[in-house]
């Protein structure tokens, strides 16, 4: 299996999608740096003349929300575009016909590819996460301690195995192009659900309309949990649970931060189960795939 993981890493390092992602990441970080320096130019002082910690927190939170909003896009696109053709694409052009006649069970091939993409994507996610935190920390206050950041990183990086699992499953069913379209649309639907969620949190709507939109966005979150996890990650990082203990916040604070409703801890368990089930389903489909 190490051979397959190594081959996947080599593929990702040598393909242009990685180069493009790195270029885009650098551009994003440069842009983020300028946004951060612009937003934090005037450091507000409290009436006593000390640095206003609440204002610092608000600025740091805004910057992090902004950074991870775009950072999650970059991560998702790297993950989707590096893996969407891994099975159907290789089968279509004939690469798989030679390799799958080798004496290894198909499930090992599938898991090897999955692990290769996931480990690589997680490493990239870590790089991006740390970069956003460092840029924010240079300019303003970053809430949380190391444990909080480990937790929020793990929730943030869960997007990687989820999207890889979906992408590989889709690749057992659709053509390379079809799967690329499917994954982009599906991820887009999840993002749209998240946006609707954020808007409904701050807009005053009739209760039944609100309920109906909540139901729709809830279903979308269950089908594509990445955006909901992104909001959960921000809530962990910004310490909403601690704030809720000190002041009356509820959904109004998270809505104010552009996060909408934050899912509970059980949703993380659901996301893990979702990934495992889809992974097993993909493996089963791949085992029976006619090449």
């Amino acid at each position: 299996m190490n051979t397959i993981i190594g081959m996947t890493w080599k593929e990702l390092l040598r393909k242009k999608v990685m180069l493009m992602t790195l270029v885009m990441t650098v551009l994003f970080l440069v842009l983020f740096w300028f946004i951060a320096s612009t937003l934090t130019r005037d450091v507000p002082l409290s009436p006593t003349g000390a640095v206003d910690l609440v204002a610092q927190y608000a600025k740091g939170s805004t910057l992090l929300t902004l950074g991870f909003f775009f950072g999650s896009f970059i991560l998702a696109f790297l993950v989707i575009f590096s893996s969407f053709s891994s099975i159907s694409g290789e089968a279509e052009i004939g690469i798989m016909q030679a390799t799958l006649t080798r004496p290894i069970p198909r499930w090992k091939w599938y898991i090897g590819r999955w692990l290769g993409y996931v480990t690589f994507g997680m490493l990239y996610a870590l790089l991006l996460y740390v970069s956003i935190i460092i840029v924010t920390d240079i300019h303003t206050f970053v809430p949380g301690n190391l444990m909080v950041h480990i937790q929020s990183f793990l929730v943030y990086a869960m997007a990687v195995p989820i999207l890889i699992t979906l992408s590989l499953l889709g690749s057992t069913a659709f053509s390379a192009l079809g799967n690329g379209v499917f994954m982009t649309m599906f991820y887009g639907a999840g993002w749209l659900g998240g946006m609707v969620e954020k808007f409904t949190s701050v807009m005053s709507l009739e209760p039944d309309i609100h309920q109906r939109l909540n139901n729709i966005t809830g279903i979308i979150s269950f089908l594509m949990p990445v955006d909901a996890l992104q909001r959960k990650m921000m809530a962990i990082m910004l310490g909403f649970d601690d704030l809720a203990g000190m002041v009356e916040v509820g959904s109004s604070l998270t809505a104010g931060m552009g996060l909408g409703q934050v899912v509970s801890g059980s949703f993380i368990v659901y996301a893990v189960l979702y990934t495992v089930i889809l992974l097993l389903w993909g493996m089963r489909r791949f085992n029976h795939k006619e090449l």
Binding site: T3, E11, A98, T99
Partner: peptide
């Protein structure tokens, strides 16, 4: 599968690898 070597009709190999690396990959598999 341990008994066979197969050259498919539709033959393509990982184009991001060198020829030696492709053979090495098959050897390791």
């Amino acid at each position: 599968k341990r008994h066979i070597g197969y050259l498919p009709e539709l033959y393509r190999y990982q184009e991001w690898l060198t020829g030696s690396e492709v053979v090495r990959l098959h050897a390791r598999l």
